[in-house]
Write a protein that binds this DNA or RNA. Sequence first.
DNA 1: CCTAATGTTTGTGC
DNA 2: AGCACAAACATTAG
Length: 272
Amino acid sequence: MTGRIVGYADTMPELPDVEAFRRVLVRHAVNRPIEHVDVTDPGVLRDVSRRRLRTTLRGKRFETPRRHGKWLVAPTVDGPILLLHFGMTGSLTWSADSEDRHRHDRVVLGFDNGELRYRDMRKLQGIRLVRDDDALDRILGSVGPDALDLSRQELTEIVGRLRRTVKTALVDQELIAGLGNLLADEILWRARIHPRRQCVHIGPRELGRLHTAMGAVLRQAVKNGRVLPRKNWLTGHRDDQPGTCPRCGTPLDHGRVGGRGTTWCPHCQQER
DNA sequence: CCTAATGTTTGTGC
DNA sequence: AGCACAAACATTAG
């Protein structure tokens, strides 16, 4: 109610959300000494102890962080690199004081002007600390190119010959980094491609639509800091009682693709 | 009590 | 090798 806490706390993190978390860090915490490190739940620490996180980070300053897919990479000046992944329920928020912490704020970094809070309910992923770029590469080495700056040609080269279902290819982080379940459905709906279509059967014209849809959806969502429910987007209609396609009014279909809940329009997105 | 949840990893089997 | 499927992780909401 005071506007003291900055950041999106209850959105499920995909590329645009992580980009928003990156901006929270840039805006409030870059280049300021970390004064204290509170680990209220070590369950989110991966390959790093509470003690080591605290002793290595205290007194350090963050450089400008970067994002790769759904990973937030935050190097410190002359120090280790903090790596954050937000799983399905994570977030990063800023608060100007230490009031009103949430019970799922698992790690808090304190600065002279406020604190950065890593919140995560389900603890499916977590926070890592690596000493250098080599160690970083060992963790991010298998992650594919970021979805935000993928050319049409690269997209074609990556998915064009796969026998897999297009949706499972889109959300596979080793192929393309940053797309999650919600974004994949949104992009496929906009490109009018059925989520169960095999990549190899998608023609060049459709691949062009896929690339255009990916860029448009991602740029808009990054601008908003999340995938915002909108009148002419699938998001905002997929969970309606009788969900109807915002383009043609046909009742939406829901099923399982690649083990994930998937929504599509049976009229706009033909199975083959 | 049961089910599903927008992520990732690991194992199994075709 | 490529791919699909299921389970596991931890927690909440309906």
